[in-house]
């Protein structure tokens, strides 16, 4: 079979999609808001589903979260992974029901749980994909998170493409310089073994190279006052000076409250439960 340059479902594509998720899709719904409000928005959606067993309410919350995701321009890879999870989850539910001779009530009970998890997952996708990680880390700092966490977010954001490229280079080196797989074995068992062992071997140079890199980075952090900033509040205040609540942030909070209340009201009007009370 002739090989060709593929723009989807190739290693390059996955890499690009991850990068797009991390960088280019920013600027969706929540980009313009104060990150603390967005974190609050997320917290509300992360908590609300656990306060009810009413499937109608959960479905309404799910719909709201799904709309938010749509407005946040989440990339196909992340959505695909989510949908894949959802589909397998559903299949799993039915399998469980069938396997243990349960009736529809079993499924309904588990659907409740899946819906709850789904709302949280969608809300996190919407909030964290459209929010610039830098702002997020500032929000964390302003909520008194340890400085290492905020540094970690910022540094991870900066390093991601570089270490992914480096790892790709190393894996390519393995592909080119080791012997290609001659036989695939029964059920192609050799293929995952080959991939797995290449993955493990590739971490050997990766660990050494990253260690070398880290040394310079930490030296630079030291000379550029990272430790100093951990001990004095001045740097923190400067960094957070731009965080200000504005009208639109209040509007977001208001809309969120209205939507959540709406969901619970609809639930009251047309309740559906996994079991009868």
């Amino acid at each position: 079979m002739a090989r060709r340059q593929r723009d989807v479902l190739s290693v390059e594509w996955v890499k690009l999609e991850l990068l797009r998720t991390a960088y280019a899709t920013r600027g969706g719904l929540f980009a313009g808001f104060d990150p603390r409000v967005v974190v609050g928005w997320y917290a509300v959606f992360a908590v609300a589903p656990w306060l009810t067993h009413n499937i109608t309410v959960l479905a309404a919350l799910f719909a709201v979260a799904a709309v938010a995701v749509a407005l946040c321009r989440v990339g196909p890879l992340v959505l695909g992974l989510f949908a894949f999870g959802l589909v397998t989850e559903t299949a799993y539910l039915f399998a469980v029901a069938w396997f243990f001779d349960g009736d529809l009530h079993t499924v309904a009970a588990l659907v409740t749980l899946s819906l709850k998890l789904g709302v949280v997952a969608l809300a996190s996708m919407a909030a964290f994909v459209s929010l610039d990680p830098e702002k997020l880390s500032d929000a964390l700092v302003s909520m008194k998170a340890p400085p290492l966490l905020s540094f970690g977010v910022s540094y991870g954001y900066r390093m991601l493409p570089i270490i992914m490229d480096e790892f790709h280079t190393i894996v390519d080196g393995h592909r080119l310089r080791s012997a290609p797989l001659e036989r695939r074995g029964i059920l192609a068992w050799r293929v995952p073994v080959h991939i797995g062992s290449t993955l493990v071997r590739s971490f050997y140079p990766m660990m050494l190279n990253t260690a070398k890199r880290t040394r310079t980075t930490v030296e630079a952090l030291e000379t550029r006052g990272f430790t100093f900033a951990g001990e004095s509040a001045k740097g923190r205040d400067i960094r957070l000076a731009y965080l200000r609540l504005r009208m639109r942030d209040l509007a977001l909070a208001l809309v969120t409250v209205v939507l959540i209340a709406g969901a619970f009201i609809i639930g009251e009007l047309a309740p559906v439960f996994a079991r009868d009370f």
């Binding site: 991850l18 998720t21 991390a22 997320y42 917290a43 992360a46 989440v74 992340v78 949280v120 997952a121 996190s124 996708m125 919407a126 909030a127 964290f128 994909v129 990680p133 997020l136 977010v153 991870g156 954001y157 991601l160």
Partner: peptide, 10 residues
């Protein structure tokens, strides 16, 4: 979780 938007909160 954060960069890929797969954060599951608490």
């Amino acid at each position: 979780d954060l960069l890929m938007g797969d954060f599951s909160g608490i």
